[in-house]
Nucleic acid binder design. Structure first.
Lengths: 337, 337
DNA sequence: ATGAAAGCGCTAACAG
DNA sequence: CTGTTAGCGCTTTCAT
């Protein structure tokens, strides 16, 4: 492997001069030409281990996601990768698979490997102390006050869902929640939903199903438990083939899809009898169309903002949380036109 | 940041001794205890830049995928990550987005950054010379003879699809191909399909639609062109609400899904009138069930085998292609029980 | 403007 | 078995 030394020898200049050329510091044009020619000729590349050793950074960012099986995450990873690449960073991906130990292992590894920072798109609990001295930005979750968080405007999302359902003719709303625990940003959706209903005197209820270990991280996709739970809840609120509510706001598109299927399974038509709005705006495998009517999160903007925050955190030591990225309603067939 | 030197000073031993402890070389127990204590006390971590500089490797593997929007890739990435993590490697993810320049940039970056090897899950063309001196294993594709390839037993997959359709009562088969060009492993599916039909005297045809720039890499998901193409082909082969074929083998689950939708769109029932079998066995967002009847690729096994090959290539300088990983038929509602 | 040289943290060869 | 030390490739200060 050719090193800076080889280039220097070949070009007949000192190592320092080659280094300057590499790093864009001005040198005499004649030298520049010679060095440039040698670099090409010898097919020289900087050794980033050496550079990182010297500079004490790696330009590597670790992105932690719980899974790629939940269709919300791949587009997110995609967007983050795009953003990081543009900033000249590399992306290390860490799939925690909702295993606390695995997650800690990753963070350990991240510190070990001296990644410059972490973008945490994950709902797992993390011990506070393990996060010390590591630039980290989290999506949707407040690990601790010192860790900035990026998120959509979940509160407005909840409001928007309720308002949209009402505007589309619903009289009795349900907020159906299977999700992360209450100190996360997403839980603000419930509050937004409730506030709209209260202020506008809309009859409503909130049903919540939690499982701190696996809810809403994608692992329930493969479990029948989740579907059974949905079915039971729907049956508990149905009578004579009629569902108690005519508008449902679900905590995720996945839940919305299951709810839709289960309602249709007992002969209730969607959106004719019951309208459903999910959250996320997932479009995967559906030709660019949302899979259900939904409150769509601005994935690209989340990635962009989160990466900007993280780089700022790395450079300047601090960054402000941004938790109001704009959501929008998208039509996906589970609401009336 | 505490270094090996700090630990040595704190423990009252030489850095050599600390190094030995770190790397599991035996030292006097008393020293071991002291060093171990100091490491904990000072929260010491090995600097992988320094280690990598010394050892001339990084333990980083770059995985190149065209996109994460095609639901086939995330589970693949997931499986590769799992495998690499088990082997103590880190995974850098590179999303080429089907942009030749971007891909080359990545490979350049990979060389620049001294990743130890590349796992290429991509159909893009790559200039031969850029692949010199880089341990690389590719999925499904033969970049050049020296680059080992891992793939499913595509030929058997094609046979299996044809046989299954026939066994389920189909009389006139269609192989509907939108895909990679013919020198890829996947094209063997066509051959397997044809061989079965010829040997068993089954009436059949092959329709192929190619676009080297974007076919089957997921980018057509958002394009109407793809759907229009499918619609046109279906209409061209339909008369009086009847499709010319009663069994279709599609080159991907995505195509199968579109075909199904378009057939149903003109009133042809699936699987009653026409049965469809896709390829891949995608289960995303569908509660563990395949989205269509399909020939399923053994993703975990592909990842496992590919990683093993890559590590062998890195360690020993060479590895054999494996292109016969077993596929199986999975029921997904588009074939009769 | 250029070159010489120190040193980033670690490993391994060698001397003791 | 332990300590000393050279050197991995690079950047950067400091003379020149």
């Amino acid at each position: 492997m050719t090193t800076i030394k080889d280039v220097a020898r070949d070009a007949g200049v000192s190592i320092g001069t080659v280094s300057k050329v590499i790093n864009g510091v001005h040198v005499r044009d004649e030298y520049y030409q010679r060095v440039d020619a040698s670099i090409r000729k010898l097919n020289y590349r900087v050794n980033l281990n050496a550079r990182g050793l010297k500079a004490q950074r790696t330009n590597d960012i670790a992105v932690i996601v719980p899974t790629l099986e939940n269709p919300f995450f791949p587009p997110m990873v995609d967007a983050i990768e795009k953003e990081l690449t543009e900033k000249g960073k590399r992306m290390l991906i860490c799939i925690s698979r909702n295993d606390r130990n695995k997650l800690h292992g990753y963070i350990e590894m991240a510190r070990n490997n001296r990644v410059d920072g972490i973008f945490g798109v994950t709902y797992s609990n993390i011990d506070d102390d393990i996060l010390e001295h590591m630039p980290i930005v989290s999506f949707d979750r407040h690990f601790k006050p010192s860790i900035p968080c990026v998120a959509s405007d979940n509160f407005s999302g909840g409001e928007l869902a309720a308002r949209t359902l009402v505007e589309k003719g619903c009289k009795k709303l349900l907020c159906f929640w299977t999700g992360s625990d209450y100190d996360c940003e997403p839980s603000k959706r419930i509050k937004g939903f409730q506030q709209y209903c209260l202020r506008n005197h809309v009859e409503h209820n909130v049903l919540s199903y939690m499982d701190y270990e696996q809810v809403d991280t994608g692992f329930m996709y493969i479990s029948q438990i989740y579907r059974d739970m949905v079915r039971n809840i729907i049956q508990a609120h149905s009578e004579n083939g009629k569902f108690e509510f005519d508008g449902i706001f679900c905590s995720s598109d996945h839940l919305a899809l299951v709810v839709k299927e289960e309602l249709e399974g007992i002969g209730i038509r969607v959106p004719q009898e019951v309208q459903i709005i999910g959250f996320d705006g997932i479009q995967i495998m559906n030709g660019g169309k949302p899979i259900v009517s939904s409150i769509q999160q601005p994935v690209a903007q989340i990635a962009q903002t989160g990466v900007r925050m993280l780089l700022q955190l790395i450079e300047e030591g601090s960054a402000e949380s941004v938790v109001d990225l704009p959501v929008r309603f998208v039509e996906g067939g589970t609401t009336r036109q």
